[in-house]
Amino acid sequence: MNINLTLIGQSIAFAIFVWFCVKYVWPPITEAMNARQKKIADGLSAADRASLDLELAQEKAAQELRTAKEEAAALIEQANKRASQIVEDSKGEARAEGQKLIDQAHAEIEQERVKARDALRAEVAALAVAGAEKILEKSVDANAHSEMLDKLAAEL
């Protein structure tokens, strides 16, 4: 319990230890710690950034998917419309064609009818002349009475 030179020796030892610690021990340790801290912080912010990027990319992908779907839907719609239009068109055409054929047939029939009637009329006129000849017992000059015969035929 005596106070002696140990006191000074201890102070000197303390000073040397502190000096050594300040110079050689503290800086590398704290540097390493700070460097690691920075590394971790960088890593975390990179991870944050990456997840943000991922989110953006996902959003973009979803949007693109949506656009593609819309486009596809529009295309299909268009195609459908076009197809139905084509069907409609061809239906109309067919109908028109049919109508035309019918009309043509009608016209032909009419023509035939008119022709037949004319023929009939001419025959009737001839018959009438023959009848009249028989009745009058004398030949009617067909040429002299053709005007009257024609008028008769037209009246039939």
């Binding site: 106070i3 002696n4 006191l7 020796g9 201890q10 102070s11 030892a13 303390f14």
Partner: peptide, 12 residues
């Protein structure tokens, strides 16, 4: 447990 030891540091 030696006062020289502790006083040495505290004097520093």
């Amino acid at each position: 447990t030696d006062p020289n030891g502790t006083f040495g540091i505290s004097i520093g």
